[in-house]
Design a protein around this nucleic acid. Structure first.
Lengths: 117, 117
DNA sequence: AAGTATACCGAAAAATTATTCGGTATATGA
DNA sequence: TCATATACCGAATAATTTTTCGGTATACTT
């Protein structure tokens, strides 16, 4: 049985929030789910750089933490859909702020670390 | 010579922002430097869980990324101070939002993952 | 002279995270 | 029947991050 290795960090509010979203793909998953629920295969299509297994594991933790909800449709072939919860949605303003900051400063970091350097 | 293994993630604005702050201590360091510049030894005092070497490495990357500035005073014993830059300061609203979210939802996650469980 | 404190760094080890690979099960369509 | 597609999982590996340990150098205090 799967067991989370490292629990959510309860030591301070900042670390709590960070620990929920700071893995490589979680913030992207939440961002993709903001408008529509998705099946794992769809999520893989919009995040092709992430291996399906990675999405599996991170979705599982997002569900465990209550940021994402999973709905299983008893069809065949099996279908399941993942959607953002109200709790997850309450994180979106933070992601929005990060997206905005990234857009504003993208040029700066491309000049600094981009391919031409 | 030290070399950063993984560069800042330029693939999208969200990942760019995340990649600058998503290590275990960077967001805490920025938060501590919001009001006052600090010497490494002071930073270790306010973040005692972080080993000094860790602060070294993360400060180095924060400086490299332009979020923190280092000032060396040519005194003896040597003194250096780290302070937040304007660019780093522009991230503070994001950290504030994370802190606020963490405060609001702390109880929820303590009930879920806390020691009594 | 010895101990203390400062800042910093290299290397190795430990811990954690990400990825790959192969496998389960089910039903559809060719 | 065979290939395809779905979702999911275990295990091993790879990659990355964090931590520990020991060492450099300097000058002050005892």
């Amino acid at each position: 049985m799967y067991e989370r290795k490292i629990p959510v960090d309860l030591s301070c509010p900042l670390r709590l929030t960070m620990s929920l979203i700071d893995s490589k793909w979680k913030s992207c998953i939440l961002d993709e789910l903001r408008d529509t629920s998705m099946r794992p295969s769809e999520l893989h299509k919009v995040l092709p750089e992430a291996a399906p297994r990675v999405l599996d594991l991170q979705l599982k933790e997002l569900v465990e933490d209550g940021l994402v909800a999973k709905t299983i449709y008893p069809e065949l072939p099996p279908r399941s859909e993942y959607s953002i919860t109200e709790l997850g949605r309450s994180l979106l303003p933070i992601l929005d702020a990060m997206i905005e900051w990234g857009e504003i400063n993208q040029d700066l970091f491309e000049k600094k670390y981009g391919p031409q350097r």
